[in-house]
Write a protein that binds this DNA or RNA. Structure first.
Length: 851
DNA sequence: ATAGGGTTAG
């Protein structure tokens, strides 16, 4: 009873009591006293029923009605006790009803200092203002508390945690402890959350120790927070330990474990936990499914994600913003644009994130038009673009080299103060680069204030792509001077820059240097090198690198295989090419169009045109690249009739020949000396197919004309073409001069050629051959002296003829030339491989020296 | 206590 204040006794009773005690006998007074007691009891019961009424209204969230009851009590002269105010304040806390709570606070103050000095009420007030995020008042009241307790401390720590003052939350945690209040299992989760935000794993471990000491580890809330904390700090082993040690796991524990794995890129582990959870029969929530979808999206596993979608439908989970977005993200990452669109159309509420996801889905799947349409639709719905929308938009402009759109997006950024964002700035730099305005890109980069690894990489990649290895390297060093350590992407770009510029040795040096300082090459590094080496004529080294790559346990992908097949094409390795073909079939990579094309190309170029045809026949719907590689294969090996037949066939099937097709057809005619066919194809190319002739096309026709003795025609064509003739064209002419013993013209052309490329030994050799054909040996030896003087040596060459089971190989050139060594190494390797396959050794390995 | 989006390299 002591804790309950006496209700105000109605006046009528009091007066009667006073008058009776003074006038009447004791007996009389006793009866009255009994009556009073009875009525007090009635009042007490009435008060209690009011209290229960208010309490249940508050619990149902009907705060306003509860306040009306309070007013009614006041009119009936009840003195309101703190438990009623407490209940009301709690109701306001639950409903976050700031204004009503403040009214109640006012009523408490009106009753004088009595209640506001009550520990229960003052604590409730601190809790109320904390929960309503009313920072100043909460802190003020907290400091004026007569008596602190665990609850008021918990409220303050919770508040600081919610508004992101994590340091203050942790300081509060310590201070509370110092003041003799033991943080309970309600405070610990907040403190742990602050630790994860600040990445203070040490502090987190300390709290974990405290949890064990206090025995809070049996509280699911605490355990879940520990899992979350370890997950957010990247210590998944410890998160797992806590998870495994839990006696009873609720769905949040499972979710936290899954989320932890997903956020640390351990997608497979996340999916495993999900499957365990399914086995245990735990009903998934939206959190479960959307995290599982993230894992599936990250590891691009189609089937799993679709299962996730099915589970969401079967469990009747509401398709809210987040679940829907996760689904769109998943379908986008696995390339199912239609499914992403379907989910998007089914979503009721969509926010910027949802829109951005579908836009980025279109961008990643190269559906530029749709991406732009969606941007317009977004604007028409009055949704504002944010950083993410603009990054996608800029990426779209870059992919389509649409500088007009890119500039518009850039301007939008400037108008809306978005251009200072690092990600957006990088996208702008990339956009100008891909639109071939590296000067603008450089300008934008120079004005960026904030630069991260991606900004630097974007710029380095831009110069590397152009083969400007010096510039790329300069920025590679500059970023380090500015305190940004390069990552594998930066190294890859520098290596690419060297390879694009023909600096093979420098590229390989960078490759070993990156490893020596502990940067592990990834698949892209290996692919860059393999394709760069083979493009620079180092096919054998490229294949060796592929072997090394597999030894360190890196699995090839489509791009990697394509670059490898290119290397095989260049060194004429059928055996190796076949081995890769086997690998492709085993791994079912054949479904990839680019691989199939490269395979046909490899077989065609390495002289096995029948195998090329076989592979090509297996492809049901052939596209332009198939015909192109087959035609150029036929051309290379002198099968002009087949090349021309294919050329006709592709047109019958409705395919439009392109510039590459014509290069193949023209070179086929040139090799076979089919003048009429070649000239007619050349004429059709311009007039019928509207393909502008390139230097290569002219080259083929010039070589065709000179080969057939029409030197005049060749010269005339050179005079009308809109290019400066290149060394290749001069080479054809020189060969023709040699055949026709046209010494004068040959000399004239050679002078030009030597001026054009004074350090290319091939030109001296060509001229020397011309003289040799005319029997002018004095000139030949003069030229040889000139080459010696200039330190030039004849490039070695290797040619071959393949018969049924024999490969005849001829190596020609300067034996001491470094390139010769490479050729011999390649041959030795080829021979070993062929013997292994049961072929007889290479025959006729004759050497023809330079002189 | 747990959940969704953007930029760079082959």
């Amino acid at each position: 009873m002591a804790s309950l204040p006496l209700p105000t006794t109605p006046k009528s009773h009091l007066t009667r009591f006073k008058s009776t005690t003074t006038r009447k006998s004791c007996n009389f007074a006793t009866t009255h006293l009994t009556k009073i007691h009875e009525s007090e009891k009635k009042i007490e019961i009435l008060y209690k029923s009011y209290f229960h009424h208010i309490s249940s209204l508050c619990k149902e969230g009907r705060i306003h009605e509860a306040v009306d009851v309070l007013t009614e009590m006041g009119l009936e002269n009840f003195r309101i006790g703190p438990e009623i105010y407490g209940e009301l304040l709690q109701g306001c806390v639950n409903e976050r009803a700031l204004f009503t709570g403040q009214q109640i606070h006012a009523r408490i103050l009106k009753n004088g200092g009595f209640f506001s000095k009550n520990e229960y009420i003052e604590t409730k007030l601190v809790i109320f203002y904390s929960k309503c995020d009313f920072l100043e008042v909460a802190i003020d009241l907290f400091h004026r508390l007569c008596k602190q307790n665990v609850f008021s401390w918990a409220a303050m720590i919770g508040l600081h945690c919610r508004i992101g003052s994590n340091e203050k939350a942790l300081l509060g945690f310590c201070e509370m402890h110092e003041n003799g209040f033991f943080p309970d299992n309600f405070v610990v989760p907040n403190a742990l959350k602050a630790c994860s935000s600040l990445q203070l794993i040490g502090f987190g471990r300390g709290i974990h120790g405290y949890v064990l000491k206090m025995g809070y580890d049996c509280c699911v809330f605490v355990s879940c927070s520990l899992i979350d904390m370890y997950g957010k700090c990247g210590v998944l082993e410890d998160a797992r330990k806590v998870f495994d040690a839990m006696l009873e796991r609720n769905v949040v524990a499972w979710n936290s474990m899954i989320v932890g794995y997903v956020q640390n890129g351990l997608n497979e582990e996340a999916m495993e936990v999900f499957y365990d959870m399914r086995l245990q029969g735990i009903e998934p929530t939206r959190v479960t499914v959307s995290s599982f979808l993230s894992a599936s999206a990250n590891s691009r596993v189609l089937e799993e994600g679709v299962q996730g979608h099915a589970i969401a439908l079967l469990s009747g989970l509401e398709l809210d913003n987040i679940l829907g977005s996760s689904l769109i993200n998943f379908y986008s990452k696995v390339g199912s644009v239609e499914d992403a669109e379907l989910v998007f159309s089914r979503m009721v509420e969509k926010d910027v994130v949802t829109w951005n996801l579908l836009i980025s889905c279109y961008v990643q799947n190269k559906q530029i038009e749709k991406a732009l349409d969606l941007c317009c639709e977004m604007r028409s719905k009055n949704l504002r673009f944010d950083l993410v929308t603009l990054s996608s938009l800029l990426s779209t402009s870059a992919d389509s080299s649409n500088i007009k759109l890119g500039k518009a997006a850039h301007c939008y950024c400037i108008r809306n103060n978005l251009e200072s964002d690092v990600v957006v700035a990088s996208s702008i730099v990339d956009m100008y680069t891909k639109c071939e305005r590296i000067d603008y890109a450089r300008q934008v980069f120079n004005t960026t204030v904030q630069r991260d690894i991606v900004s630097w990489n974007t710029l380095i990649a831009a110069y590397a792509d152009l083969g400007m290895s010096g510039e790329a390297l300069k920025f590679f060093y500059q970023m380090q001077l500015e305190g940004v350590p390069p990552n594998v992407v930066s190294w890859n770009s520098v290596i690419l820059g060297f390879l694009r510029n023909g600096q093979v040795n420098e590229a390989i040096e960078m490759f070993s240097e990156m490893q020596s300082i502990g940067v592990q090459p990834n698949l892209i590094t290996w692919t860059t090198l393999i394709s760069g080496l083979s493009q620079n004529g180092y096919g054998y080294e490229a294949i060796l690198l592929f072997q090394q790559m597999q030894e360190v346990g890196i699995q090839p992908n489509t791009v990697n295989i394509v670059s490898l097949l290119l290397a095989c094409t260049n060194i004429v390795s059928l055996r190796y090419g076949k081995a890769i073909h086997g690998h492709i079939i085993r791994r079912e990579l054949f479904l990839s169009r680019s691989i199939a094309t490269s395979l046909v190309d490899m077989y065609a170029k390495s002289g096995n045109i029948n195998l090329a045809k076989k592979v090509s026949d297996m492809i049901s719907s052939k596209e332009l690249p198939f015909y192109n590689v087959m035609i150029s294969g036929y051309a290379l090996h002198g099968h002009a009739a087949e090349a021309l037949e294919l050329f006709k066939q592709m047109q019958r099937e409705g395919l439009k020949p392109d510039s590459i097709t014509f290069t193949g057809v023209l070179s086929a005619c040139s090799h076979a000396g089919l003048v009429d066919e070649g000239l007619s194809v050349f004429a059709d190319m311009v007039s019928l197919h509207h393909v502008t002739p390139s230097m290569e096309h002219y080259g083929c026709v010039v070589s065709l004309l000179s080969r057939c003795g029409s030197l005049d025609g060749a010269v005339k064509l050179i005079l009308t073409m809109p290019f400066e003739p290149d060394a290749h064209i001069f080479g054809s002419l020189l060969a023709a001069c040699r055949e026709n013993q046209e010494i004068e013209l040959g000399e004239y052309l050679s002078a030009h050629l030597l001026k054009l490329e004074p350090n290319n030994s091939a030109n001296y050799v060509a001229l020397s051959n011309t003289y040799a054909a005319a029997g002018r040996w004095d000139e030949v030896s003069k030229l040889r002296d000139l080459m010696k003087e200039k330190g030039l040596r004849k490039n070695p060459g290797c040619s071959w003829i393949q018969t049924e089971r024999k490969l005849h190989v001829f190596v020609a050139g300067d034996k001491s030339h470094p390139q010769t060594e490479v050729i011999y190494k390649t041959l030795a390797w080829l021979e070993k491989e062929m013997r292994f396959m049961g072929y007889p050794p290479l025959v006729n390995n004759a050497e023809i020296s330079c002189s």
